[in-house]
């Protein structure tokens, strides 16, 4: 089948799912990166995760939350995604990566697509299947995650113009970078809190003195 690769931006994820290897090279060549589509994908990822947590069947969701809180899901998806993007960018710019922030962001977001689909399929089928038929569900999930990882590797390879081993190494160290970023974030937050408390104490002290 011959594709004319003058695709509108929203069609690229669908094309990439079907062509996980050469697709990303096409994407780079055609400059198909689109931040709007990427952000929609990330948002959809967040929504899918929430839907899966809420709507999957009781038999497969026995840790179903008694009190539902959406914030952890947000940080597990959206926050973690951007930490990934920043971590990857800051690492790969130092190591001859050709990817821009926009490119990395789009490639990562598009790679989430098969994972999202598998999560949705899981949510629907978990309401139909029994626990003894759980094999189907784990198969779906393994397929989705595996496909997404494959896309992520090939996408990173294309966006940075790396060799395969270098890509794998970069991905590994991106996780390390993420850990460092999160550590610094936590540190900053707790430091900020202490500074805030310090100034607040001074403020209350002044209030007591002058009133």
């Amino acid at each position: 089948m011959v594709y004319d690769l003058q695709l509108p931006a929203w069609k690229w994820p669908f094309y990439l799912v079907r062509h996980p290897f050469e697709g990303f090279e096409d994407l780079r060549w055609k400059k198909g990166y689109n931040m709007k589509v990427a952000l929609v994908m990330v948002l959809a990822f967040f929504i899918t995760t929430v839907v899966q947590a809420r709507a999957s069947g009781f038999l497969f969701n026995q840790e179903l939350p008694k009190i539902f809180n959406v914030v952890p899901y947000f940080s597990m998806t959206v926050l973690l995604f951007f930490v990934w993007v920043i971590g990857n960018w800051s690492l790969c710019t130092l190591f001859d990566g050709e990817g821009t922030m926009k490119g990395i962001c789009c490639v990562s977001a598009y790679s989430l697509f098969p994972y999202m689909i598998s999560m949705l399929v899981f949510t629907v089928t978990s309401n139909i299947l029994l626990e003894r038929e759980a094999g189907f569900l784990s198969f779906i999930m393994v397929l989705g995650v595996g496909w997404a990882v494959l896309m992520m590797i090939s996408g990173m390879k294309a966006v940075h113009q790396y060799s395969v081993p270098k890509t794998l190494l970069a991905l590994l160290f991106t996780i390390v970078a993420m850990v460092i970023i999160l550590f610094i974030l936590v540190l900053l937050v707790s430091l900020g809190q202490q500074i805030y408390i310090f100034f607040y104490t001074i403020y209350t002290e002044l209030l007591f003195r002058f009133t």
Binding site: F58, L59, Q62, I128, L130, E131, R132
Partner: peptide, 17 residues
């Protein structure tokens, strides 16, 4: 059975299905 017994839920759901 919902949020009381997974085993019971499974049995009831099988027959229900």
């Amino acid at each position: 059975f919902h949020s009381h017994s997974a085993v019971g839920y499974e049995r009831a759901f099988k027959d229900y299905r």
